[in-house]
Design a protein around this nucleic acid. Structure first.
Lengths: 159, 159
DNA sequence: TCTAAACCTGAGTGATTTACTTGGTATTTA
DNA sequence: TAAATACCAAGTAAATCACTCAGGTTTAGA
């Protein structure tokens, strides 16, 4: 699992799309202005999102992009995986060149952790975020009040 | 939240440390050989880990590194945050230059998601991973059987 | 005290990635 | 046809990554 700024841009743009999904296609120019992302960079991101069947483009005036599926059928993991390749980490990979066991163990542990992160992000859909967002939009601070059980208070690390 | 190979190296190295924590200090040379990471790169990573009070170094012959706290008191988020700076994403930040509300909304949504990921990683300790790992070491595939409630079956995206 | 083992510092570097630019082509609507 | 939009390809400056090099300093054992 990779979680870079590229993935953030994609998630942010997709959120923008999900918020306006019932208002016809959304142009990249709109998202570009809205999110402060350059148009061409968005084009690259959306090329990847389109390749993974997450969005569909409509050409011509009045065109733009809309979600290829319902926002409840698109997970955050889907989006991040579309734009950020999933690179395998293990050096020993699937091969048998782990001599002492420990090397393989730490790699196995990392892979499992990576899978857990992936699963976690797979269970968060765009629709869920948007649904919570509609609360924010009005309340401006009530986020997390009826949040999923696994969500707790943030405890950012002291820099 | 950033999750790059740098963070992976750090987590992997810390896992190595946790696994041998009761066997005295672990040298970087050992980890370097074990994990296939260059010694100097490890030194850089461990400088950051030491600065964040996650490890302590013992100098001189027979020295090395050991965990500064119990492995149950060190979370994956701690490790990743130590080596990968946490960069704020929002362009509008805390300022009031969000005109239309939507811009701010998507940013708020991203921030909340980011917090959720952070919280998720905060709840996974080194000790937990190692504990599960000792199962793997023997069973080689029983991971996740008595996993925390939020962990489900992996469903990797079709590439 | 000498010396080797270990940590510590800082500078530099090729490769890769990011975020973006330029300059188009294709398609659709008015 | 003209304009708006998606689509496509190539290039690029800056940043980051993963690493190397060249020195330290600190400690322990001879």
């Amino acid at each position: 699992m990779r979680l870079s700024t590229k993935g953030r841009y994609a998630v942010t743009a997709m959120l923008d799309l999900a918020l306006k999904n019932d208002q016809g296609p959304v142009t990249l120019a709109e998202i570009s202005e809205n999110q402060g992302i350059s148009l061409s960079y968005l084009e690259q991101l959306f090329a990847a999102l389109r390749a993974k069947q997450l969005v569909r483009g409509v050409r011509g005036p009045g065109g733009g992009y809309y979600l290829a599926r319902g926002s409840d059928e698109i997970s955050i993991a889907d989006i991040i995986c579309a734009v950020d390749e999933w690179v395998e980490f293990t050096r020993c990979g699937g091969r048998e060149d782990c001599q002492d066991g420990d090397r393989c163990l730490t790699h196995t542990l990392w892979n499992e952790l990576s899978k857990e992160i992936f699963n976690f992000l797979s269970r968060i859909s765009l629709a869920e975020l948007v649904k919570k967002g509609s609360g924010i939009k009005n309340v401006q601070k009530g986020f997390g009040e009826d949040a999923p059980p696994q969500i707790q208070e943030a405890k950012p690390v002291a820099a």
